[in-house]
Computed example of a mutant assay.
Amino acid sequence: MVLLVFRSRFAAFYMVVWGLVTAASRMTALGLEAWPETLIRIANGGVPLVILIHWTAKRK
């Protein structure tokens, strides 16, 4: 909601970091066998990353 209404770059960056950290935590908690779950959850950081890159490129 914050991204759509306010276009907050800080919120997008926070979502990127949080999504990637939680995806990586699967590997640290469950071991290397959890790589499929990590790939599924990497999108939680990937989608805001694409939005952030788009906004940054559009700004320049």
Rank of each mutant, 00 (worst) to 15 (best):
F10K: 12
A23L: 05
K60M: 14
I53S: 05
E33N: 12
T28D: 02
W55A: 14
W18S: 11
G45R: 01
I42L: 15
I53C: 05
P48R: 00
P48C: 01
Y14A: 14
L4M: 06
R9C: 02
I42C: 04
V2M: 10
W18N: 07
L3R: 05
L39M: 15
G19D: 03
L4Q: 09
I40M: 09
I42M: 08
R41N: 11
V16M: 12
T38F: 15
A24D: 05
I42K: 05
W35G: 04
F10T: 11
V50R: 01
I51A: 08
W18R: 10
V50A: 11
L4D: 08
T28N: 08
R59S: 14
A12W: 00
R26I: 09
I51Q: 01
S8C: 13
A57E: 11
I40V: 15
L4C: 07
L4I: 03
W18L: 13
V17Q: 05
M27C: 06
F10R: 08
F6P: 00
V17H: 02
S8M: 00
W55V: 07
T22K: 10
L32Q: 12
L20K: 06
L4A: 07
F10W: 05
L30A: 14
V16W: 03
L39A: 12
F13D: 05
F13I: 00
F13C: 02
L3D: 04
W35I: 13
F6W: 07
L3F: 07
W55C: 04
V5Y: 04
H54G: 14
N44P: 00
